[in-house]
Nucleic acid binder design. Structure first.
Lengths: 225, 225
DNA sequence: CCGAATCTGAAGAAATACTGAAGTTGTTCA
DNA sequence: TGAACAACTTCAGTATTTCTTCAGATTCGG
């Protein structure tokens, strides 16, 4: 899952990134209004953590812009202001949740997870696809009720497939989602081949069909239902 | 058996009521501090499910008031907050148990049932997991009835695991729960490794299975039942 | 049939986890 | 108060697991 943290207090931004990386989110940052606009136009994020008190503009305007651009990213507003009007305005403009400073990082994490769950998976903690089921809370994957032990990357990969079910996802998109900035537009995709191979093998060894369909020259399509 | 659910998130409150009714509890709700005080003064409840993060006041104050009024109601604290101090304060003030959000309704139900059983049959506050038992009042841990001497951190760690039974807890979350904000997103987790090692050793030396499962790259999962 | 894309197993590199011991802090009790 | 002890944290070295790279095999579309 990929996040954009829009926050100009470097210390806070860094600690959010550090925490969320450990929670296995892919994180990118923007320290200002303009940088955020740029990144949001270029990339897809599962959730944008938006501090509405930026130096170089009003975060609510940015929010307006995100929503006007028909971007489907989730948005969590972070604010030092406790004013009810900001909260209401934010939620009216389409933010998914609101978190006043100061906050516990674990609460931030829980809320972000909730937003993503709500937007991508209908709010459910357990996803089912044919003989496959995924418990988001326990971070566990089952085939016919039997636990399959996946590594971090394999789990992230599977999750990315599930919410792009039926769509072809390019290797570029996968790289961007699982690795962020530094790997997007990589020269080769050997590491993706390897992870896909391992994921396929683990699932099929446990008795699952192969729902990861290769689409020559395009990418992969997850075909379970 | 009659419950009072003090919770201002209507969706959560409704789903608790719906679930608990099926478990044959009589349910009433209060969406705020003042409403709760009123109801508690007027009626007797077997157990009060108290969210300590209310809009209109601190839930811990309400708890203090319940206990000061010599009400004998059992109290289960529900909290999104993760600060250890809240937990400790809550239990010190006389709460019977503590359940962090998010939780499974089945777990809530089990804990409520346990509180009621305990209070009605004069038992002490004891959690049981296979050959492990934890006396919350005495803050003592037993393996097959034999006392295991744990340090404070080890005890807190074990307790935190039991609260999150079956879920993967990240080292971040552990750090934040046991040490508070300042450790969130810490650079290294050496101290967690050490405490986990010591806790594991003490429990296993006493004849317990190792219920603390390491999940590479994600954290730990407590697997007893 | 050719070149490009994809797949595979194996090996090296990197990240994560564990351990014992040493250093530091805090508590207890004379 | 301060010596003795317990608890906590840090550190350095080791073990384990995962990630990435690579070379060769296979498949695919034209």
């Amino acid at each position: 899952m990929k996040l954009l943290i829009v926050e100009d207090e470097k210390i806070l931004s860094d600690s959010i990134v550090s925490y969320m990386r450990h929670e296995n989110f892919t994180c990118e940052t923007a320290s200002g209004f303009s940088e955020a606009v740029e990144k949001i136009e270029l990339f897809d994020y599962d959730c944008i953590l938006l501090d509405i008190n930026l130096q170089d503009g009003n975060g609510l305007d940015l929010l307006k812009e995100i929503k006007a651009n028909n971007k489907m990213d989730g948005v969590l507003i972070i604010s030092a202001r406790n004013s009810l009007s900001d909260k209401i305005t934010g939620l009216t403009l389409g933010a998914d949740d609101y978190l006043p400073k100061p906050f516990h990082l674990s609460e931030l994490s829980a809320r972000v997870a909730a937003i993503i769950r709500r937007r991508n998976f209908g709010g459910s903690n357990i996803l089912r696809f044919n003989e496959l089921s995924i418990d988001l809370q326990a971070k566990a994957v089952f085939v016919n009720g039997k636990l399959v032990e996946l590594t971090r990357k394999e789990y992230q990969l599977l999750l990315y497939f599930t919410y792009n079910k039926g769509r072809v996802v390019s290797k570029n998109a996968i790289a961007e989602h699982l690795w962020g900035d530094e790997m997007g537009g990589a020269a080769n995709y050997d590491f993706i081949y390897t992870h896909i191979k391992n994921l396929r093998r683990k699932l099929m060894d446990s008795g699952s069909e192969d729902y990861i369909q290769s689409v020559y020259g395009m990418g992969y399509k997850f075909t379970a239902s």
